[in-house]
């Protein structure tokens, strides 16, 4: 049984219910499609949950498994904690762009995320981060004219 799929099915039911209940308040013309879609998603979600619950043998996660070397599976422990930490850092990065400015927040994000991952050498991380920030500034700020605050409001 794939727990993620089971939870996704339950999420689908909740999402469909939310859309359905909201759609009941709309005028008929605006409500028709959300109602049809939400009922369809709810039925598909129910089918997904039912098929997972009825599945006796464990679902094979072949697609998610790491690539085999010489026919033997390679035992690699997925780094879920590091993944969650990098995602949390990405949220913090977005939240600080307006306060710290794009340059400082990007450098801080890269430094913190690479520190969490710990598989990249310091020299490579330094050079590559400088190149990345430079490319982003040239392409997005100079070329596209994106009005992103590069420096903190106090300095700029």
């Amino acid at each position: 049984m794939n727990t993620n799929r089971l939870l996704l099915g339950l999420f689908g039911i909740a999402l469909a219910a939310l859309f359905f209940v909201n759609a009941l308040k709309y005028p008929q013309a605006a409500a028709e499609m959300p109602l049809i879609y939400s009922v369809t998603v709810a039925l598909l979600s129910l089918a997904m949950v039912a098929s997972e619950l009825l599945r006796r043998r464990p679902a094979s996660d072949a697609a998610a498994a790491p690539a085999a070397e010489d026919g033997e599976p390679v035992a690699i422990r997925p780094r879920y904690l590091a993944t969650a930490a990098v995602f949390a850092l990405a949220i913090a990065y977005v939240a600080t762009i307006n306060t710290l400015g794009y340059l400082a927040s990007t450098v801080l994000f890269m430094a913190a995320a690479l520190l969490v991952i710990r598989t990249v050498s310091v020299r490579f991380a330094l050079i590559a981060t400088v190149v990345l920030v430079a490319v982003v500034c040239v392409v997005f700020v100079q070329f596209l004219g994106l009005p992103v605050p590069l420096l903190p409001p106090a300095i700029s």
Binding site: V86, A90, Y93, V94, I97, Y102, T106, F109, M110, A113, L114, I117, R118, T119, V120, F124, A125, A128, L132, V136, F140, L144, L146, V148
Partner: peptide, 20 residues
């Protein structure tokens, strides 16, 4: 190029790309 760096670079590019 190490996967760890590619991952962080993708996230940074996604953020600026979505902002654009």
């Amino acid at each position: 190029i190490p996967d760890g760096f590619i991952a962080c670079a993708i996230i940074a590019l996604c953020i600026i790309g979505a902002y654009a």
